[in-house]
Simulated assay, not measured.
Amino acid sequence: MAVRISKTLLVASIGLLAAVIVLNNLTDYNANFQYIQHVLTMDTVLPESRLTWRAIASPQLHQIIYAVIMVIEGAIALLCLGGATALFQAIGEDGVTFNRAKTTATYGLTLAFLFWFVGFMVVAGEWFTMWQSADWNGQQPAFRFIGCVGFVLLYLNLPDHNLET
């Protein structure tokens, strides 16, 4: 039972993280929007960079991309919190039922991993060379999210040798 409770709470924690991120993006829109603008315009990368042809200067596209980011973060929150609810409801059930209850959480955690890895490490970090910016480099926070989410995703889906999960 302890392993099931642990898995449920960790999935809920990732859902809570995503929900708070969405709340922060909505309530402090401009602060986080500036981050998106600087990354997309590549205005703080190394001056000699030969990759700035990739920059997106359109303020309308910045708004759209920021909205898409918030929608994805919202989906992560809903999937993880919904997944945690399903896990909680199945805590006392047999192993097959509990394993089936992992589906929504697995989707949410996978989306979170892909979002922070592909979105922030690959696209922002490498394509828009965010790593070159001293002020607008979000790779370290993204990597922390990836690590936490990856751990929870693996832990959730580990088989339990005590047949508890």
Score class of each variant (00 low, 15 high):
Lys7Phe: 01
Ala18Gly: 04
Asn99Leu: 09
Ile5Pro: 00
Ser6Arg: 15
Phe143Asp: 08
Gly15Met: 08
Trp136Gln: 04
Val152Gln: 01
Phe113His: 06
Ile56Lys: 02
Gly92Asp: 11
Gln60Asp: 08
Val122His: 08
Phe33Asp: 01
Ala75Gln: 07
Phe143Tyr: 11
Cys148Val: 09
Ile56Tyr: 00
Asp160His: 11
Asp135Gln: 13
Leu163Ser: 14
Thr103Glu: 09
Thr8Cys: 11
Ala18Trp: 00
Thr97His: 13
Val39Thr: 05
Arg50Gln: 13
Val123Trp: 09
Gly147His: 03
Ile64Ala: 11
Leu40Ile: 03
Asn24Lys: 14
Ala57Ile: 07
Thr85Met: 10
Val22Gln: 03
Ala134Glu: 15
His62Arg: 02
Gln63Gly: 14
Gln37His: 12
Leu156Asp: 01
Val71Cys: 06
Ile65Gly: 02
Tyr155Leu: 12
Pro47Gly: 05
Ala112Glu: 09
Asn32Tyr: 14
Ile14Phe: 06
His62Gln: 07
Ala2Ile: 10
Tyr35Leu: 11
Leu51Asn: 10
Gly108Gln: 09
Ile5Arg: 15
Asn25Trp: 00
Ala105Trp: 05
Met70Lys: 08
Leu81Asn: 07
Phe98Gly: 08
Val68Gln: 07
Ser6Pro: 00
Lys102Glu: 03
Pro59Met: 08
Leu26Met: 14
Val122Asp: 08
Ala101Thr: 04
Gly95Ala: 15
Gly15Asp: 04
Ala112Leu: 09
Ile91His: 01
Ser133Glu: 00
Met42Val: 06
Ser49Gln: 04
Asp94His: 12
Ser133Val: 02
Val71Pro: 03
Leu16Gly: 13
His38Thr: 06
Ala86Gln: 15
Ile36Thr: 09
Ser6Leu: 14
Arg144Ile: 06
Trp53Ser: 10
Phe115Tyr: 13
